[in-house]
Design a protein around this nucleic acid. Structure first.
Lengths: 136, 136
DNA sequence: CGCAATCTTGTAATAAGATAACGTCACATC
DNA sequence: GATGTGACGTTATCTTATTACAAGATTGCG
């Protein structure tokens, strides 16, 4: 099996449960919200969630939103988890949109190069109001 | 006096102390680190720090680094606190560099417009190794 | 098989980050 | 002097994240 792909069957029981919670959710979830949702499935301690999340993030199936201390399932089709991804986060409804943009990525790389900075990871989070929430 | 400028004399005692701690520091400081540093000056509770930080961030004198849960004094000369600023954070030495880049800002605006997203605030944090730390 | 190495899990305890709720004080304005 | 506002202090509490330790499960190999 392809070692770079992590299908559902590759996930452990806890990872599957956490992934399920995130996939079923409309928006981002905090680790403790996930914990509460999974108590019926035997979850009792934060670490069970954090450990699963660590792996899911590593696999690129889940993204961490730094400005929210929360996590979202990757909605980016074909996302390999290593691209530069920007998130648009609606402060009203909580919806999150993933954007992967070449120009943005290129510019960030150029800026890093200019400063001789060895770029490892990029966090881009845009806060504001989504289309629907502006109308309301 | 210009209401948009906040010189040292505009700051309250606590704000001045917190600002001083951040200015004297090489890198970003967490709220609790600041608290510890200011115990000798009478600080006893986190809220004293957080309240000062809130104001300083509002004034544009301090930036919050979401991916570190920490704060840095603005080193960006003439920074009005409302520009789009990117941070390059060295994971080895902890040094933080501020970048304000027109191309980046323009692209982010364009992406937001495209999605009819009303952009309020942007977080851009680049993690990696600075020039000196790569050499070592 | 038997055993070691590694990975996953469970649990308790605690650290680190942030806010809520309350009351008080200083100061400006009318 | 009454009133409003903003900063301050204190306690308690809440949320987020990690450390430390032990027990199972799984894989690989002699």
């Amino acid at each position: 099996m392809n070692e770079h792909v992590h299908a559902a069957t590759d996930l452990t029981k806890n990872q599957t449960l956490v992934m399920g919670a995130l996939t079923n959710s409309d928006g981002p979830l905090s680790a403790y919200t996930i914990l509460d949702q999974l108590r019926d499935h035997g979850f009792r301690a934060p670490l069970q969630v954090y450990r699963a999340l660590d792996k899911l993030v590593e696999f690129g199936l889940v993204h961490r939103l730094e400005s929210l201390n929360a996590f979202v399932a990757c909605r980016h089709p074909g996302c390999d988890g290593h691209q530069t991804i920007a998130f648009m986060i609606c402060e009203s409804c909580g919806q999150v949109n993933e954007i992967s943009d070449g120009i943005l990525t290129k510019r960030l790389k150029a800026l890093a190069d200019e400063a001789s900075f060895a770029l490892k990871k990029t966090t881009i989070e845009l806060r504001g109001l989504c289309r629907s929430c502006q109308a309301a």
